[in-house]
Amino acid sequence: MSVSIKANKTLFANRRISDQMYITLLVASVATCLFLIASVLVPNFFQLQNMLNLVTNNWAVISLGVGVTFLLVSGNFDLSVGGIVALSGVLSVWFAQSIGGANALSTGLGLPYWLALLGALGGALAIGALNALFVVKFRIPSIIVTLGTMMVARGIAQVITQGSQRNTNLPDEFGVLGSLKVFGTSIQLPVVFMAALLMLAIFIERKMLFGRLTYWIGANPTAARLSGIDNAKHITYLYLFSSAIAGVVGILLSSEFQSGYSNRGMLMEFDALVIALLGGIAIAGGFGSVIGMFFGAIILAVVTSAATGLTLSPDWQFILKALAVFLAIMAQTWALTRRNQ
């Protein structure tokens, strides 16, 4: 044992931060710098409430980003999350609406509230299972599959809402989840959900076997299989995980707005992908972290809210997003090649 302790010392003495940590730090410092610059340039930017808003306003996309990040690390896309948000929200409304409304859109299934939520979550998981089936079993590129399921999920939502929304004849408790203030503060339940999810995700990623399996599969699927890992099972779990998150987000959003709207969550899948890319997650797989994704979201939030603060037209957000992703990717490639020289 004494030998190994000695070895421990020498090997730790030279322990340097990994590329992973390096990129995460890079992303975090970029987020900080941007925040400071925005504070100087934009009036009233440097305020506690504003800082909090950067995170709380984006709770939905950050939550979706967690599932998308895990899948990207495993080498797979998930573009279906936006559609699932719409689907689960609409389902929860439809299930909870009481029977015998004035017209088709105000008549639901009249299920108890808890059952409605379970059913909505089940619908979300079904889409996740469909993703897994096509990606794992049929080996169709995940980007195609999830584009398809995105449309299927949203399409079902549109059929149920007949292309518009359902917002009548709901039980009283329906609006509670989305607007509940926690512990008497102004923090709402969805934000708590996001925070808890982030903690859980970081724990899974850093401390659980599940997280490590994700990295192994993403880094080299063949080697993972030859090392006895059941890639198919794990990717199935990841798709279910991601769709479950999207399902909860959809339920919370529909509760907050007390409506099931088929266009809700539109383009959220792209935003989730964008913050993951900003956060240094490589689409080749095996590289990236949830913390990085979180800071990626901060970067995007700072940039867009600074643009609003500078009274730029909201149309600028698309251009700023594009620029941010482009610069992020170039910077990360540049930083990694430089470091590895």
Partner: peptide
């Protein structure tokens, strides 16, 4: 090999049962 992972991260892959304590790595 998982070439973009470290030596430390490469070694335990073939014995994940031994590396997990109710799912905790």
């Amino acid at each position: 090999l998982f070439t973009n992972l470290t030596i430390r991260e490469n070694i335990p892959v073939m014995n994940i049962r031994r590396m997990s304590d109710n799912g905790v790595f």
